[in-house]
Design a protein around this nucleic acid. Structure first.
Length: 317
DNA sequence: GGTAGACCTGGACGC
DNA sequence: GCGTCCAGGTCTACC
């Protein structure tokens, strides 16, 4: 299969743009001489109505050229629609070029590299669970939780569906996936998705304003102010900052702010206020630049090695 | 409306 | 190598 992309689309840059690309079932494999060529392969299992399929994606022609997809089995017509929809969501292929131009006009620092798109999951459910597994925990534990969720409850290594998790006892998630106290919240969330009480179509509807969506998110189990703001950016609404201890570290280390955590958080929020509806992109790419300064270009990171090294101690160095 | 403390896990650190 | 401490965001109880 081949998939057309926007003229500015660059697989290596646009996949390796947010931490979720390092979480299972996602796998980015840097190609030979990746630092110079930015060549690489993206691979993951997608759970389609007709069964799981492993999709391997490359962009042999470079920026703006079509993506080449290899699937582990023959894809039926009905599956093809779902596959295309999920890939479009995950890779942000439907992000309008004018939106990115507006972002680069507001924050020209990212115009040359073309950074703007942020990788996400093929479904809102996966984005929500990945966000919950990133709360109140260090990055290596987030990696582990996602790996085990896929291994234990996903079909053939796919991310588990809401239906699959809704049927589990919280204790099973705790025992097999190491999610700790998040167990009941994850099962409760899965039930809300599986029964349609949380409808992704409603959350993805651009007609609803940010505040209405934020209010609904914050009512969900395990979702507080940080998680709600993060899910908003995953929904393509970039006017909110998920402030956490990383924001404070960024304020201290990069922005040279002094004072207690609370006051630094407030000042970080104020710093990005001028970027309005694009503020998360400006904020995130600053953080990303810091990580790349530590570990090299993100398209050279490997899930099993570099990806696991993002500990609090490393970032404080 | 604001805040202290519990929740669970594993990295970091001291011995 | 082992034991202990502590970071991390959300939730509840309480002021």
């Amino acid at each position: 299969m081949r998939l057309a992309v926007p003229r500015d689309y660059l697989l290596a840059r646009d996949v390796c743009s947010y931490g979720y690309f390092l979480l299972e079932p996602n796998l980015w494999v840097p190609g030979p001489h990746a630092r110079a060529t930015r060549a690489g392969t993206f691979k993951r299992v997608l759970d389609l109505p007709g069964g799981p399929v492993t999709v391997t994606i490359t962009q042999p022609g470079g920026k703006g050229t079509e993506l080449v997809l290899a699937c582990s089995r023959k894809i039926q017509k009905s599956d093809k629609q779902v596959l295309t929809r999920q890939l479009t969501r995950m890779l942000r292929l439907d992000e309008p070029a004018e939106t990115l131009r507006a972002f680069h006009k507001l924050d020209p620092r990212w115009k040359k590299s073309g950074r703007g798109r942020l990788f996400r999951s093929p479904t809102l459910f996966e984005d929500v669970i990945k966000t919950i597994t990133s709360c109140n925990v260090a990055w290596p534990s987030t990696i582990r939780m996602n790996r085990r969720l896929c291994e234990v409850f996903g079909r053939e290594g796919a991310f588990p569906t809401a239906e699959a998790l809704a049927d589990q006892r919280p204790a099973a998630l705790r025992a097999h996936c190491g999610v700790g106290y998040r167990d009941a919240r994850i099962v409760e969330m899965a039930k809300l998705f599986a029964t349609g009480q949380v409808d992704p179509v409603w959350f993805e509807n651009p007609a609803h304003d940010d505040e209405a969506i934020r209010q609904r998110l914050i009512e969900l189990p395990g979702i507080g102010p940080y998680a709600a703001a993060n899910i908003l950016q995953l929904l393509g609404r970039f006017g909110h900052l998920p402030l956490d201890t990383e924001s404070v570290r960024h304020g201290r280390v990069v922005l040279k702010m002094r004072g207690n955590s609370k006051s630094i958080m407030k000042r970080v929020a104020r710093t990005f206020e001028p970027f309005g509806e694009h503020k998360f992109r400006s904020y995130w790419f600053e953080l990303w630049q810091f990580y790349e300064a530590k570990r090299g270009p993100s398209h050279t990171w490997e899930r099993e090695t570099t990806g696991k090294t993002f500990t609090a101690a490393m970032l404080e160095q």
